[in-house]
């Protein structure tokens, strides 16, 4: 029995160390290799070179990714949080609620490239938007929708039911209760859920390939125009195999943004618990 417990302990500690080690190695490796590419010029100029990206910087990709992510977050947050609010506060039938959860789980399981094809056929072709930031952002928004919904639902269900009843007992409506009491309580968790979803969107190239991302563009001025995106740029640099330094640099910037956003999300959620 004792040996068994010890074995489980060793296994758990090893797994934990291995996981942390892999993540640490990944970050260190990319940062180490990418650091030399990071210059002020790299961050503030457009890609150049005979083969695009071998020279110059990644500014259009940074701005493009910010656009895609902002639209994805907006779209995903509105729909995801609204779905969760419906499930927790309005839906009276447990069957409908379970059905919604099932659909969300299925959506979460759809490969991102399939999401991309869906966005392509609906937004780019059927609606005739063409490849553009809006189409790409919404496609990513659909991708992170279940991600945000699950977290929002969890946060909403954690609100003390006694407080909600106390609010109803004053004769105020559900909508008022949600707006004044519930959202105020859950805001940090909702925001952190959206930020984490945004990080997920920012790192995904597949949904953008057919819907918005291009190899080369200027800093975008309209959401109805296509734009570069960091993960897609990284992908292009790698398959061309021409400039691994700039590829590492791009990865560096992307990971840094995600790391900072994740930390911000964690801090935001933690502040509430305090």
């Amino acid at each position: 029995m004792k040996a068994k417990i010890l074995l489980v302990k060793i296994w758990a500690v090893t797994a934990c160390a291995l996981t942390l080690g892999i993540i640490f190695f990944l970050f260190a490796y990319v940062f180490w290799n990418g650091a030399e590419a990071i210059t002020w010029e790299f961050l503030t100029s457009a890609p150049k070179g005979l083969v695009i990206g071998t020279e110059g910087g990644i500014l259009p990709a940074i701005v493009g990714s910010a656009w895609y992510t902002a639209i994805a977050c907006g779209f995903g947050a509105v729909l995801g949080i609204a779905t969760a609010v419906y499930q927790v506060f309005y839906c009276r039938s447990s069957r409908i609620s379970s059905a919604i959860s099932l659909v969300m789980q299925c959506m979460a399981g759809v490969p991102s490239i399939v999401m991309g094809l869906f966005g392509y056929s609906l937004l780019v072709l059927a609606l005739g938007w063409g490849k553009c930031i809006l189409a790409g952002g919404i496609t990513q928004g659909i991708m992170i929708l279940p991600f945000i919904q699950v977290r929002a639902e969890k946060a909403l269900r954690e609100v003390d039911p006694l407080l909600i009843r106390a609010s109803y007992s004053l004769g105020v409506s559900r909508a008022y209760t949600i707006r004044k009491l519930v959202l105020g309580q859950c805001l940090p968790q909702l925001v952190s859920g959206v930020i984490l979803g945004g990080c997920h969107a920012m790192g995904a190239a597949a949904p953008l390939i057919f819907t918005g991302a291009v190899i080369m563009s200027k800093v975008p001025k309209s959401v109805m125009k296509p734009a570069m995106a960091l993960p897609y740029h990284l992908y292009m640099l790698l398959i061309q195999g021409t400039s691994s330094v700039n590829a590492y640099g791009t990865a560096f910037v992307m990971m840094l943004v995600v790391l900072v956003a994740n930390t911000a999300a964690t801090w935001f959620a933690w502040r509430r618990k305090k």
């Binding site: 006694l162 407080l163 609010s167 004053l170 004769g171 004044k180 009491l181 105020g184």
Partner: peptide
Amino acid sequence: LRRRVGMVFQTPAPFPMSIYKNMTYAPQY
């Protein structure tokens, strides 16, 4: 109905906000 018939629960259930806001929650509505 619930405006006309108020309720107080077994466990005190103040909203996690200031005393003032607790008291203006319903009147503002």
